[in-house]
Structure formats: C-alpha cells, structure tokens
Design a protein around this nucleic acid. Sequence first.
DNA 1: CGCACGATTGATTAGGGTCAATAATGGTGG
DNA 2: CCACCATTATTGACCCTAATCAATCGTGCG
Lengths: 255, 255
Amino acid sequence: MPYYFVRKLECFTRLSDENKRALIRLSQNVQLVGPHRDIIREGDSPEYVNLILDGWACRYKTLESGQRQIISFFLPGDICDPHVFVLCEMDHSIATLTPVRLVQIPRDALLGLTEQHPRITQALWWETLVTAAIQREWTVNLGQRSGIQRLAHLFCELLLRLRAIGMTENHTCPMPITQQELADATGQTSVHVNRTLQEMRAMGLITLRSRLLTIPDLDRLQRVAMFNPNYLHLNHEGAHLDANDRDASPLHAKP
Amino acid sequence: MPYYFVRKLECFTRLSDENKRALIRLSQNVQLVGPHRDIIREGDSPEYVNLILDGWACRYKTLESGQRQIISFFLPGDICDPHVFVLCEMDHSIATLTPVRLVQIPRDALLGLTEQHPRITQALWWETLVTAAIQREWTVNLGQRSGIQRLAHLFCELLLRLRAIGMTENHTCPMPITQQELADATGQTSVHVNRTLQEMRAMGLITLRSRLLTIPDLDRLQRVAMFNPNYLHLNHEGAHLDANDRDASPLHAKP
DNA sequence: CGCACGATTGATTAGGGTCAATAATGGTGG
DNA sequence: CCACCATTATTGACCCTAATCAATCGTGCG
C-alpha cells in the first residue's frame, strides 16, 4: 500500500528516510469510513487532524435553502487542516465521497512530529499554502468561467494532483464521483453538467465512464479551461532545502 | 492614527502591552501607494509581507481572456500572507483599490517578531485561518447564491470586518469601491450589479452613495444573503490564552 | 468650464436553471 | 446466475437570470 502523503510532500521537498519513517508511523489506528459519511460537521469542535490515506473526500457547506457547495476535494495523501486547532469550531463540514481509509491524528502527535522534523514542518506549510491557492483558483473558476470551462478546469486540477501522487496511468485517472457532485463543486445543476459532459465528449476533450477519466490531449483541455498550473506549486519548490536543515520556520525558507 | 492591525488581532486574543509595542514598531518605513496600483504581481517572487495600515486593497487574477476576478479584499489592518515565503512565486496579484498606507515587512523582521512573541504568532495563525475561511465562503457565495444574495453577503462580511476594527458608525461603513469592482468580486457584470443595487435600495436593504454604505437592518440583510457570521471567528476565540503563554504552536492552542 | 470616469438605462440574447419523465447501471440477496 | 431495487445518467420542454452591446447621464476635480 503506497503512502500517498509521503509522495505528496515529496512534491515539495526532499525528505530523509527518518522523515518518512516518522510520517509512516502516523498511520496507526487506521479507520475505514464508508462512502458519503460525514467525518466532521460544521459546528463541531476539532479534536483530530484527519489524514486521508486512501479514497476521496470533500469539504462542503449546506445553506438553509438546502443548496450544497463542495468547497474542495481531498485526494489520497491529503491532510485536512493541519492547523485547525487554533479555531474553536468548524465552519464547514467534511465528508467522504468514496470509501476512505483515514487516520485521525491527535494534536500532540502532530506537534511532536513537527518539533522533531523541521523538514516535515516546512512541507506541511507548503501543503497549507497550496490548499489556499487552490481555494483562490476555485473562486476564479466559479466567478469567471463558463460551465464547460469550470469542468475542464476541475479535471485539469484533479489530474495534476493525482499525477503528483502517482495515481494516473498515461492519460487516465480515477474520477469516482457522480455528476451531482461535479455539479455541487462547479456551482451548476447536475442536468447541465450532464449536457456539458456530453459536449466535452463530442469535442473529444475527455472520456468519462466507469469512474475513469481520460484526457487525450491535456494541453488542449488546459487551453479550453484557461488553466495555468502555477498555483499548484508542484515543481519541487523546496528542493533547495537541505533535508537536515535545522531551521523549520516558514518565514525562513529561502526562495 | 489608530493601529488597525492591533485592533484586528485583539479580536482573537488579548495582547500584552509589550506585544502591542512590538507590533507598532513594525510601522517603520511607511509607504504611500496611490489607488489602483499593483503592489505585487503574479509571477513575482515575494520579498516582503505587506501590512495594510490604511486603505483598501485586493487580491485578483486576470485570465487570458481579460476577465478579472477579485479574490479577496484587504481592509485596514490586514496582513497579506504572513507565510508566503515558502512559495517561490506569486500565483496572483495584489493591488490597491484606494490610496493605501502600507509597510513592507522583511522576512527577518517578521520572524524575529514571532520568535519573541508567542501570542502574536498565535494571532497571526488565527488571521491565516480566518482568511482561508473567508476564501471558502466566497466559493460558496459564487457557487450557490444569486446576484442579490452575493452582494448582500459581501456587504455583510465587509461590515462585520470593518466593525471589528472600529471603522463603522452605527449602521454605516465606508465602501470606497466602484460598481465594476463589486462586479469583479461577485462574478457579475457591472451592469447587473447596478441593477441589483437599485433593487436592494428599493427594498430598503441598503443605502449606498458617496462611498458610504448604510445597512439599516443587518439581520434582514443577513437573512437575504443566508449569511452566517461563524466563519469570521470574531468572538475572541483565543481569549482563554494567557498573554504570557510560552507555547506558541498553533497545534497547542486549547480550544 | 470641460474632461474623464463611473453610474444608469434600454433592448436583445444566451447560458443555464427548473421540472418531470425515462433509461442505464450496479450492487444485493435469493 | 438472475431478478430487483436504488442510484445515477439522460432527455425534453420551457423559463429566467444575468450577459451583451451601446448609448446617455452625473459628478468630482483640475
């Protein structure tokens, strides 16, 4: 079973063997959660940091009117809010989309880890900032792009994130979510998502069936979406950091 | 001249006199920037952390098509990305909206501050997490709300944030931005914003003229917007923290 | 006073929502 | 292995919000 979160953090910087062992030791008390279950709800007080070992999950908010917005997707290896403890209560919910294997990391365990491993601290910082960048890009996506562009952009993002953790094969990646969920993420109705997907298939932009997405020409899809991958910061920006660097303050990272 | 950023951080937790003096010492080398000027551009490498002493600014992104999305607003006292140095290059731009007084804080100055003042470190953490929460709420706003609701929601958010730093008078606050900018923030055209504002005025929800916004009945506007202020975490959630607490790790904050 | 920018208005159109019905799919138990 | 049921996907008809284009009006300011 691959450790996706190790792969993910290695997108940013080199990790020592000791770093990796420490990360892997977190995977105690693995929990299995079925699909479409809440992991934590708006209003709850955060007690753990959730690390998604495998499967997909999402942040979401439900309005009084019943409308739901999916705010972001969690993929294998993603960690849900490593610094959430500063706040007293959750302002959104997190739910599984597929069956999920996760670990709930107690505050002290995570604190111990970062105290012992400056490089991991840096990498978690990078992960936090990239998460924020993704959220900003979603703001742009919902505010400025058309239906087809929103879906195209989402597919580009998910493909690159999945590729970063080694979950793609050639031009194909898993896409284990329903059209309703794509609709909730892109601020459309499922009816319109359905029609837009058909249009994208007709244009030869994608194949999507059996929960598998194929993008024959990623450049073309990126052009359709006006997608610029810079916000994902996937180019080993922390490669210059010595794996044994003592200084773990994010304010110290030398760009 | 009030120190809005001190007021803002005090929304989270109590600060000692020494904390405050240290914060105020940052205000060396104040810069005056005219309206509608870029402070930092997408692609630039971040060299400073910008602290807005006074005036309004915004994050934005421009697409190849020329469309612009305003991603967030910076109000007096806001600090632009205290932890940005982990990343090599900016994935968005920041520009002034009004004339702005700001300080560009060098990395080392900020690092020194947080090393000396654990309480400030905590408060900056809170600020970072609230900024992320605001971004999520904008995602919901753009994805799920109608034109009038988006504007109403934005006005509610801005009023509460301005009230937190003491910039409101009764039901009135400054709103020094154009309809085009409201449009770029809410993902609409300025024509439609204009019509929606007229509708809101006709409903008695707001008064907006001479760059002043009045909200006679905030509860009512909140209901229209389906606005829930919980995501702003403005209820002194860090009040329990002793101002001399030694431990500054966000993972340690006891909710 | 005149200029530039921002606000306002009107007419028309298009993208996407709504509602409702039907068809595929896939998982389950007998 | 197959029948059944629940979910998910698909289609059609119609409607409405908000975009577009273009012109005009205000207003603050040098």
